[in-house]
């Protein structure tokens, strides 16, 4: 029961952090440099990746769904929900699969997740617009995911190093 409460609290804190990161990345509009609809740094993926290794696939998926839903509610834009859910869930499924390959570091898992996220978002755009015009941006988005995935992988690796000796990492 003690562990359950602790894990629930950690999930709530990570959800809040993911929401905050989603908001913060609006201050770094990547689309000004690369004019592609929906292009983002994907900073919230740091939390997803951290939760995947620290808590497991189930809690990480719950944090992701909660973040997507609350993000849409707080932004007052429920239309954005399909984009964040489809992108986020696709990324999560790919990262769960890649994290099973023990030889891959957080960088590889993060890059794979970023690429999958962009594929999911393009699929959401195709469904929303009802035509294949968004596919035009897929090659660019996949190329960009190399850099955004490496960046979120780097930050996640720094986070694990910083927390390596805390009670959180020792599972106390």
């Amino acid at each position: 029961m003690k562990m359950k409460t602790k894990q629930l609290t950690l999930c709530a804190v990570l959800t809040a952090m993911a929401l905050a990161l989603s908001y913060v990345e609006n201050f770094f509009p990547l689309s000004l440099a690369i004019p592609v609809p929906g292009i983002k740094l994907g900073l919230a993926n740091i939390v997803t990746l951290f939760a995947l290794y620290a808590l497991g696939a189930g809690p990480a998926m719950m944090i992701l769904i909660a973040r997507c839903f609350l993000g849409a509610v707080f932004a007052g834009n429920m239309n954005a929900l399909i984009f964040s859910v489809l992108g986020g869930v696709t990324a999560m499924l790919v990262m769960i699969l890649l994290s099973q390959i023990r030889k891959l570091s957080v960088y590889g898992v993060s890059i794979g997740g970023a690429a999958a996220h962009n594929c999911g978002q393009v699929a959401a755009a195709v469904l929303t617009l009802g035509n294949t015009a968004p596919l035009y941006y897929l090659p660019i988005l996949l190329g960009v995911s190399l850099f955004t995935g490496a960046l979120t992988g780097l930050i996640t690796a720094c986070l694990f190093r910083a927390l390596a000796h805390t009670h959180l990492m020792r599972g106390e």
Partner: peptide, 24 residues
């Protein structure tokens, strides 16, 4: 803590990056 991941990039990560480039 479920599992501590590898934190240093290696050739396997490079393979994922190459795969994404090929896909692009």
């Amino acid at each position: 803590m479920k599992r501590m991941p590898a934190l240093k990039a290696n050739r396997w990560d490079g393979a994922v990056a190459v795969l994404v480039v090929v896909l692009a």
